[in-house]
Nucleic acid binder design. Structure first.
Lengths: 196, 196
DNA sequence: CGATTTTTTGAATCATATCAACGTACGTGG
DNA sequence: CCACGTACGTTGATATGATTCAAAAAATCG
């Protein structure tokens, strides 16, 4: 499963943002490798330096932090066509505060910090690509803060399941509750309401 | 006040992230202009396309959104050495959801979308610079979501005033309350507590 | 100085958390 | 393939952090 990297989805994704020369694709294919992982695989652990960046081809990752009370607070999910890493740890090569873990068996593309640096040096178009996707992610997270502040937990859940109906089925409810910022009990009560 | 742009703070900031050739600085100086604005100046308005990116040399900007109830929800502040724009609107050149406004008389550096594109084409090191600072901002916003979820309003306020004691003095309390995600009344009550 | 904006205070109310108990599903080994 | 144990989901009672509204007090600005 390491020999024929499934680059196609990534290349298509990149081409939505920048134009890629054939040479760039070649460089890309030597630097990125694909990886299939089982559910619950931990890719990067809080306290250790995060050396890799992950592109989800299929499956789902979560990024979480351990709270003071010892719970796992989910900060972000990554599904198809999303990059995930602990940006702070990856970029500064300092111990990360977050843990990254698969919540489904997943098919990933993986690139290490050193490979990425070499890749960016050879294919500057990708520097722009990565800037653009982080800008999107940043925008989305600011909008998310707006919703967290201005909608009730129930409203956030209903909006989320309207926007991502399939996803709500895929992950356990307690993870959804954590991501949306309330308790599993509360989510259960919300669901009980509309289920008549 | 338009003739001698005060580039120095920006150049120092850029050099924390990437190395700049003299040629890059020259290009920079032809594309960026400086601007002094009075308090309450609106730089970019919700509903209109955001054409500029702002670097704060001195002063303070806020980015806010109008809530359903007609309030102004502050999503982000920018002080010295911060870039601010509505990234989504600026990048896609689509109507913005946020408004950007000065909260103090401020000294800014301003660059337009078209100037930035030309600048990035001529000085690719800046592509990397802008990627790195957005990554930082994104990381910070994820950490912020963690704190919003896992600390009470009171804890968030105390932490914030421990981290930015001068800043807490600078902006009106109702803005701080909005940024921290609770009502001005509640902030007043928090302060009343420890003030004996 | 007066007028407007900002902050404070108190009482009633609401959304969500907490805790504990019970029900259900699920996957692993016998 | 069943049984058991563990993980996950539900329900109800009680507790709490934060909101709302209204009004008064304080600060700021032209």
């Amino acid at each position: 499963m390491e020999n024929t990297p499934q680059l196609t989805p990534l290349i298509q994704h990149i081409r939505k943002f920048v134009s890629l020369a054939d040479a760039d694709i070649k460089t890309l294919s030597t630097r990125i490798h694909s990886k299939a992982i089982p559910n619950k695989t931990i890719l990067s652990r809080a306290g250790e330096v995060c050396h890799e960046k992950y592109f989800v081809i299929k499956g789902c990752l979560r990024l979480f932090i351990h709270t003071d009370e010892g719970n796992e607070q989910i900060i972000q999910f990554a599904i198809d066509n999303w990059w995930m890493t602990d940006y702070m740890s990856f970029e500064m090569q300092k111990p990360s505060t977050f843990t990254i873990q698969a919540v489904e068996p997943s098919q990933l593309l993986v690139i290490t910090k050193t490979d990425l640096e070499e890749l960016l040096a050879k294919a500057p178009a990708l520097e722009r690509y990565f800037r653009l996707i982080v800008e999107r992610a940043y925008s989305a997270s600011l909008t998310r803060i707006h919703f967290i502040y201005n909608q009730s937990g129930e409203e956030r859940y209903r909006q989320f399941s309207r926007l991502f109906p399939e996803f709500v089925q895929r992950v356990p409810q307690y993870m959804l509750a954590s991501y949306l910022g309330f308790t599993p009990e509360f989510l259960s009560k919300i669901r009980a309401k509309r289920k008549e």
